[in-house]
Design a protein around this nucleic acid. Structure first.
Lengths: 175, 175
DNA sequence: AAGTTATAGTTTAGTTCTAAAATAAATACG
DNA sequence: CGTATTTATTTTAGAACTAAACTATAACTT
């Protein structure tokens, strides 16, 4: 979904020599749009590759993998709604994903005594073993894919994107 | 680090809309993994917002908007396969998107004399007018969303992500 | 306690995308 | 030439996701 410049070979880098107040404004605009397009391109490239490998190697979708990853972090289990928020998908989708994973024996729904509407979704022993193996390989892939970006830049990127993330969170609150 | 975990009560009370895909990882994970998760989170947050606004404001999907954006950049038209590569979606999908846009009168299929299998997809006059209006607003949204990231950091981000993008491209070649 | 409202999860219907097979035209090869 | 291969697009079947309606339970409110 590259909007303006999906062509992987980027157009010539822009170079602004002088910027008065007005041209700076315009230029900022282009900066933002270009940054967004590049962010989108990069993410899609990595995501597509990971999705394909997960399927090829483990016959699992990224969504299911992500659900398992959440549970691995929370051994006490998570509610459906909590999973929905964390995975940024609809509740109906979580219902479907969970049902499939239950059918495969990777996770279990356990009732919560204090709230009979809800239940905790937990990794089963089998699910944990299988997920751990997948996660290890998954991590290798990611490390390999990002290896050409030097470590200091990786950390800088992480930090700058943190600013963007929190900015988005605040904007979201204000709506 | 994780907003929801750091202060679950607050987060719940505020009913944070954007949950956090970064909670997929565990704390001791490698830099690369953390960077990848943050990249994914940021992109999803922005993308989700833009997708919702495009739909609400113009009743158009992001995919169709992106297709129009490609054509706006290439007034001479693009082939289906070229669109497929640029948009990073399957050819079948491009067929569907194009057919809808043709039905709406935004684009036209024009035969290519030299190759009777193919044709060029072009913006119609109507399509150009409509797209220009949408693109203007779209750009405002992006600028607004990224406004909290200082301009120098935006440029740095853009540049570093460029390295990642080219790295991914080279890796893809080697497969 | 009763009625209202909010929350948790599921179901349903519909959209969007993909992968793979099918079709058709162009190109390469012996 | 004629046959095979490649390239360009469409069709088909189905996977993955969403929004909205629905069921059930919990939490307020008076």
């Amino acid at each position: 979904m590259n909007i303006l410049n999906a062509n992987p070979v980027d157009a010539a880098a822009k170079s602004v020599v002088f910027a008065d107040a007005e041209t700076r404004g315009t230029d900022d605009h282009h900066d933002s749009l270009r940054l967004w397009l590049r962010l989108l391109t990069c993410t899609q490239m990595v995501e597509r590759e990971i999705r394909a490998r997960l399927r090829e190697r483990f016959s699992i979708t990224l969504a299911r993998f992500d659900l398992l990853a959440q549970l691995e972090r929370h051994p006490q289990g998570l509610r459906m709604g909590e999973l929905s928020r964390r995975l940024m998908v609809t509740g109906g989708n979580v219902t479907g994903l969970t049902s499939e994973l239950v059918a495969e024996g990777f996770v279990a729904r356990t009732p919560i005594p204090e709230d009979r509407r809800a239940f905790a979704v937990c990794l089963t022993a089998k699910g944990k073993i299988v997920f751990d193996a997948m996660a290890k390989e998954h991590e290798r892939w990611v490390i390999e894919m990002l290896a050409d970006v030097p470590a200091p830049e990786r950390q800088q990127l992480h930090q700058m994107l943190g600013a963007l993330k929190h900015s988005m969170l605040h904007q979201q609150e204000a709506r």
